[in-house]
Design a binder for these strands. Sequence first.
DNA 1: AGACTATGTTATATCAGTTTAACATTAAAC
DNA 2: GTTTAATGTTAAACTGATATAACATAGTCT
Lengths: 336, 336
Amino acid sequence: MTTIKDIAQAVGVSCTTVSNVINGRSGRVSADTILRINETIEMLGYVPNMSARSLVSSSSRVIGVISHLAPHKNESIVEDPFHSAFIGSIERTLSENGYYLMLRTVETTAELVAFLRNWNVDGLFFTGVFQDEFFQALSELSIPIVLIDSYVSHSNMCNVGLEDYKGGYTATRYLIEQGHKDIAFASPTIRERGVVYERFLGYKNALAEASLPFRPELVFEQELDLNSTVSLGRKLAKRNDFTAVFATADIMAAGIMAGIHEAGKKVPDDISVIGFDDINLCQLTSPKLTTIHQDAPLKGKLAVNFLMNLLENKKIEEREVILPISLVERNSVKKI
Amino acid sequence: MTTIKDIAQAVGVSCTTVSNVINGRSGRVSADTILRINETIEMLGYVPNMSARSLVSSSSRVIGVISHLAPHKNESIVEDPFHSAFIGSIERTLSENGYYLMLRTVETTAELVAFLRNWNVDGLFFTGVFQDEFFQALSELSIPIVLIDSYVSHSNMCNVGLEDYKGGYTATRYLIEQGHKDIAFASPTIRERGVVYERFLGYKNALAEASLPFRPELVFEQELDLNSTVSLGRKLAKRNDFTAVFATADIMAAGIMAGIHEAGKKVPDDISVIGFDDINLCQLTSPKLTTIHQDAPLKGKLAVNFLMNLLENKKIEEREVILPISLVERNSVKKI
DNA sequence: AGACTATGTTATATCAGTTTAACATTAAAC
DNA sequence: GTTTAATGTTAAACTGATATAACATAGTCT
């Protein structure tokens, strides 16, 4: 392997000079030397060794994406269609900026901290709800963090979020406008400071605003996996005390629809369904799924932007972006 | 940050001894010393610095997953539902084995080689079809590589594959058994030594075996993105010269189904559709998609196993595993 | 008693870079 | 004609680990 030493030797200068040129600190290097060094680097196919670099600089250009911190979930973040869209976007944007993405499953805070220190990880993306203990540990490490879809604010972290409350409100409001009065709510576990909680608040307030009662028996908390959502759909099909469901994720909405169909009822004729996220799947179901749209690639891109700014110590005026939602009308909601 | 030196100092031994204990080379270290070292490591919260490690050992425990090598495709591998299932599996298995996964977009062979050398990447996963030039470059680097779904065999690489030919044959045969005589074939670009090519051969041979003519005008090559597949579906709906389509990917089959429905025709009454992969999506469409099943998580796990064996220089009797396919009958194919 | 093992332990070099502080050389300023 | 500044360049220390080869010490065997 060609090293910086080989380049220095070949050109007839010192390592320092080569290092300076490579790192753009060529202010005090003569034009001729720069040219010769670059030529030699090209010729010898020199590639810097990141281990040596990060050893001496204690920073690595590695950005971590933590897959999950919840021990019970045996599912990687990439397996969720919404998140994978947005990780794809993160990955591309990071590559463009000369950073490297490490995907890592950790189950405990200790494991996470070990991982970050193992590699001198420069920055971190997080999505979801976490325990305080966890944030405590992270702020001690003081590495730049961008939180995505996390209703936690921390002095040295940035947030990329969504109009979740408005999304929940808009979805519910839309159902009400279509004449629905008894509207079920389906979501994974509702946790405070999570996106689902905000969507839930939006749902409740839309009901209240229309003077419709909030009926706790119509709130269904369920895991997002295929089997759970489909069986929830079957269960819902058996009831007759509501006419529409708002599911806080498209995969859940789609599963519910499948379950309803399995049970012999029809969407939207018997039960209307509205989803959230607007992933590709919405256009592949029959009927196509009416949903709340959000821009996953943009979310990824903005998250990377934030992180880049944090890493370069740029002054950040606004530590938070909230992306807008919009309603996408398709065919899974009936007007009554 | 606590270093190995701090541990050594605290315990009153040398770095070498600490290093030996950490790396399990404790054969010549007294039980008492081992105990004290481990206690101190625990107490001081020591975490090894991977950069220093990989610098001296020129191996990093980093495994690369190359996101895409096709410059025209602006899509990360994680965005494809089949691949994301299987990357999720790879990621978990690697973590369990103490390896780290780096996801990287590269567009040229040079970029790939630079990436591998940058980080002393220990091993690599590849999926898909690549140019010879590319394999040339990789074999020069001589790092362990596991090819997934790639019909290329190379002396120091392992392959995890699928019964693609049989899959194509089984799907087509099934359609024929259901009474279909005019069967279209839909896939991304058919490239030699790719999975699609094998499935295509299976399709052709099943036709031939049943004495049905192969009709080139019924072969449709199309990108896998949502818009392309849906518009292919619309296009297919306009034709009357076939009764069934075999799509070599479920996302394509689902898109085609959506397009057919958009055009006012019905699956399976007007046109039957069969897919490939058996991703979750198959159970979310209406009708549910009949498809060829393959086990994505197992594929990932086996790929990791191969890589671990290659990394540990274990004797490998068989450099190749071919996973079995199976037919999953659902409701998208009509018996005529 | 001396040679030989087995058992513990450790200086020191090394990995491939970056950083620091100093050293020449030439040009400009007073 | 010296001081000052600007321009190039470099030797050497350092980052945190591992590997090599050597060095003690204690016990065992002739």
